[in-house]
Design a protein around this nucleic acid. Structure first.
Lengths: 244, 244
DNA sequence: AGCGGTTATTGATTGAGGTGAACCGCGCCG
DNA sequence: CGGCGCGGTTCACCTCAATCAATAACCGCT
C-alpha cells in the first residue's frame, strides 16, 4: 500500500501532521482525506542546498513543505538568477510548471527540509471526483498569484527599508501561523538571497539591518532576529513610499 | 438560452472568434466547444475607464479580452495603487479572486473594450466532465504565475531603460500573436500607468522614450510607437543589469 | 472658440542606493 | 595550526532615478 515505510523523521499521515490546517481543505470527509493521503509521497529529508526540482525538469508534482524551508528561483534570458519565493512549513510550491509542463523555477532546500510530493495527475483525477479538492487546488494556485502581486507592489513602490521590513513581518506572520514565535526567529536564507529577492544589494540589506537595530526596531545577530517593535516596522512600511 | 442577444459589435461564438487559438483549448471536440461556448456571456462593450470588476467584489467569473485592452491594479494597505498587468485580446484575467472568493484587483478598460465573461462555477462543472478543459484552466492560471515571475525579475534586477524596453517588446510579441504589426502600434495606456507598472516615475519613463528615440531604437509620437531596432532593444535588456 | 484640468516633456538638483574595496569572524582543510 | 575562502559588515564614492519646477500639448467642457 504505502511505499518504503522506513522511518527517517516522521512520515506521518496528513491527519496527524501539524501543518494540515494550512495545506489541506478544512472540510474533508474522513474517507476523502484518506484518498488524498494515499497519493502523497513523503521522501527522505533533503540536505541544505539540495534541489527538489530544477528549472526545465518535466512537471510532475507539486510540493508541500513539512519542515525546513525552500527557496525558489528562476534564471532569466541573460542568466541572472531571481529568487521568486521562500516557502515555509505548510506552504505549497511548484505551480509554475503547470503551464508549459516543465518547471520554470528551481527549488532548493535552505536547510534540512522535508517535503510532501503530490503527483499532479493523480491530484487532478482525485479533484475530478471530489469537487472540494478541485476547488481547493485552484485556491492554492490563486493564492500564489496574490502573493506574487504583493511582491510586485513591494518591488515597484517601496524603499529598501520598507522592503526588508515587509519581508520580516511576512516571516513573522507565517511563523505565527505555525504556532511559533512571531518575534524571535532564525532566517533560513543568506543576506545574498534576501537581497536578490528584494531587488537590492547585500550591502543595502546589511545597512538596513544595522539601521533597524540602531532604531530599536529589532535585535539582529547574524541570522537570528528578534523583533522588538513590530508596530514601528508596520508604520515604516505604510509611510507613503509613493512612486508614480 | 442566451440572454440579451442584442448585437452591439459582434457577439460571435468562440468558433468564429479571431482570438480562439489564444484562449481556448486547441483540441476540443465540436460538442465540447459548443458547451463551453454556451456558458460565455458577451456583454455590451465597455467604455474607456469603465470597470469590469472592483477589488473587493465577490468573485464570480474570469474574463477574456475580445477587443481593446484592460488594466488590472490592486490597492495595498497604505492606499497606493499598483498596476499588476495589462491584458490584450485573447488574454484572460480575474484569477486572483479565486483564493479569497473576492477579487483582489480592480480591472478597468483602457479604451473601448469588449470582454467575454466566463462564470467560474459553471466552468468548474464543465471542467469536471471534460478533463482537457480542466487542465487548460489550470494551465492558464499557471501562465499568470509565470508572467508575474517575469515581472518580478524585471522589477528586481533591471534598470529603467531595460524595464521600458522589456514592456515594449512584450507588447510587440503579444501583438504579433494577434497577427498584428509587431513594429507599429499604439500603447493603450498613459505614461503614468506605464511608470506605475514598471516601478518608475512618469518623468523617468518619458526620458527613457526620448532616449530611445535619440538612440534610434524607435520613433515615438505620443502613444504611437514604431520599433525600428528590436535587436538593439533586446541587447539592451540582456546587457547585465545585475544586482546581487 | 476659449477655458481649466489633466498628461507629457524637459531641465536642474538631490538623494537613495549601487559600486568597489577593506575588514572581520568563522569554518574548512591541508 | 595557519592559510584560505566565504559570508557579513562598514566605508567612501559615484550613479541613476526621484524630486522639484516650469512649460507645453492635449484633452473634454460649456
Amino acid at each position: 500500500m504505502k511505499n518504503t515505510e522506513t522511518v527517517y523523521t516522521s512520515p506521518i499521515s496528513c491527519r496527524e501532521c501539524r501543518m494540515n490546517t494550512l495545506c489541506i481543505p478544512l472540510s474533508l470527509r474522513s474517507d476523502e482525506l484518506y484518498k488524498l493521503d494515499q497519493l502523497i509521497h513523503r521522501g527522505t529529508p533533503l540536505q541544505a542546498r539540495q534541489a527538489v526540482f530544477y528549472s526545465g525538469d518535466k512537471f510532475t508534482s507539486i510540493y508541500a513543505v513539512r519542515s525546513g524551508s525552500i527557496k525558489q528561483f528562476c534564471v532569466d534570458d541573460d542568466g541572472r538568477e531571481q529568487v521568486t519565493g521562500f516557502y515555509l512549513p505548510g506552504e505549497l510550491f511548484g505551480w509554475d510548471g503547470l503551464a508549459e509542463n516543465h518547471y520554470q523555477n528551481t527549488a532548493v532546500a535552505l536547510e534540512t527540509t522535508s517535503v510532501c510530493e503530490i503527483p499532479f495527475d493523480q491530484l487532478e483525477q482525485l479533484g475530478a471526483s471530489i469537487p472540494s479538492i478541485q476547488r481547493h487546488v485552484m485556491r492554492l494556485i490563486s493564492r500564489e498569484i496574490s502573493s506574487d502581486h504583493k511582491l510586485i507592489a513591494l518591488l515597484a513602490g517601496h524603499s529598501a527599508h520598507q522592503r526588508l521590513a515587509s519581508l520580516l513581518l511576512s516571516f513573522s506572520d507565517r511563523l505565527a501561523q505555525q504556532k511559533l514565535s512571531s518575534t524571535r526567529f532564525r532566517l533560513p536564507m543568506s543576506r545574498g538571497e534576501i537581497s536578490n529577492y528584494l531587488g537590492l544589494t547585500v550591502e543595502t540589506v546589511s545597512r538596513a539591518f544595522s539601521h533597524f537595530q540602531r532604531m530599536n526596531y529589532l535585535i539582529v545577530n547574524k541570522k537570528e532576529i528578534e523583533l522588538v517593535d513590530i508596530p514601528g516596522l508596520e508604520l515604516l512600511i505604510s509611510n507613503t513610499g509613493d512612486s508614480e
